[in-house]
Write a protein that binds this DNA or RNA. Structure first.
Lengths: 190, 190
DNA sequence: CAAATTATACAGACCGGTCTATATATAATT
DNA sequence: AATTATATATAGACCGGTCTGTATAATTTG
């Protein structure tokens, strides 16, 4: 099936982006790792690497947004919802020897010269921010306050991942989770 | 002069690492950007790219550590010291069109397969953490608490930089600075 | 058959790294 | 002091390999 191959290529690309970013992810790496037909890369993505990476980023960004939304909405309190997100990331990092990080963060860090890709990065941050913000509002925060707290949360998550990779330890994530819980408690949010 | 060329190569490498990470920084890019003699790269760094990157990281990591220490020690309160660090980073990001980030964070994100480089990443985080922790202790925090707060601070800084790059806005840094100030105040730290 | 899809060969640029030759400075020897 | 020896440093061509991307052929599929 056509869409099947395309899908496989996108998911594999997203995975490689999480691990090593754009520059270290070769087109051949993608076909090799995906097991997808070798001849179909430039058929499905005539725009080349930029298109492939941009679409992969967009897809995985939306997927992770959905995951976050579910984790937040299915939790009684915003606090436990956010804690679940940290636990999930922590498990992924540890079980991958600290190779798998955040696709958005990894790509944003290297700031590649690909306009379409940079475009998506901004969109993803806005999406994620909105999901967290809305959950905080539902937890009782005023919109302006929720806006700031959501921004802070995103920064902490991204940074904790980077620090975890650098030091090969999940401690940054554990501390981050604990401190955010404390913060929300101090703000009287549920 | 000999040491001069070496130094130039190291500083240029560090700069390029901050902007685009290891994979996108070619050896030729380094000599071109540094204006250093093309023939002397592998004379000064016989270990090749890995040695060059590892040494550049180590040097810039130590330099930034010194800068942080000075900013923290020359400030009346830990709060204003940390705020100064944010302001500095914010200015650098904005004036470089959000290209210049943190060398440690950028390299850690792409998690390159270079043992010597990864080694340095861990060392840098430990160094930085210790500087912040000590300042927080001097501000009145108990050691265990200072340890956690320093860890949180590092995560926030790294993450705020990543988010700023993704969204091409310094808002994450401003929010981060504000929230850290609020946190320290709530903890009764000077 | 016709269209969609995959295979494969290859172009051209660039990569990190090695090589030899040359220049320059310092030190040793006479 | 003059000259030789030695370590340091730079120039630039060059190697095999890999990169993205293209062109064309073969194959599946409806």
């Amino acid at each position: 099936m056509a869409t099947d191959t395309r899908e496989r290529l996108l998911r594999t690309t997203a995975q490689l982006l999480r691990e090593r970013g754009v520059a270290s992810t070769g087109m051949l790496d993608v076909v090799a790792a995906s097991g997808a037909p070798k001849g179909s890369l430039y058929f499905h993505f005539p725009g080349g690497k930029e298109q492939l990476v941009a679409e992969a980023l967009q897809q995985t960004g939306a997927d992770m947004c959905e995951l976050m939304k579910m984790a937040l909405d299915s939790s009684k309190s915003a606090k436990t919802g956010l804690a679940n997100i940290f636990a999930f990331l922590s498990a992924e990092l540890a079980s991958s020897s600290f190779k798998v990080g955040c696709p958005m963060g990894t790509v944003a860090a290297e700031a590649p010269d690909l306009p379409q890709v940079r475009e998506r990065l901004g969109e993803i941050v806005v999406m994620w921010h909105s999901v967290v913000k809305n959950r905080l509002i539902k937890a009782g925060a005023k919109p302006a306050r929720a806006d700031d707290l959501a921004e802070l949360f995103l920064s902490i998550v991204e940074g904790a991942i980077v620090v975890a990779k650098a030091r090969r330890s999940t401690r940054s994530l554990e501390v981050a989770q604990k401190e955010i819980a404390r913060l929300l408690k101090n703000e009287g949010l549920t």
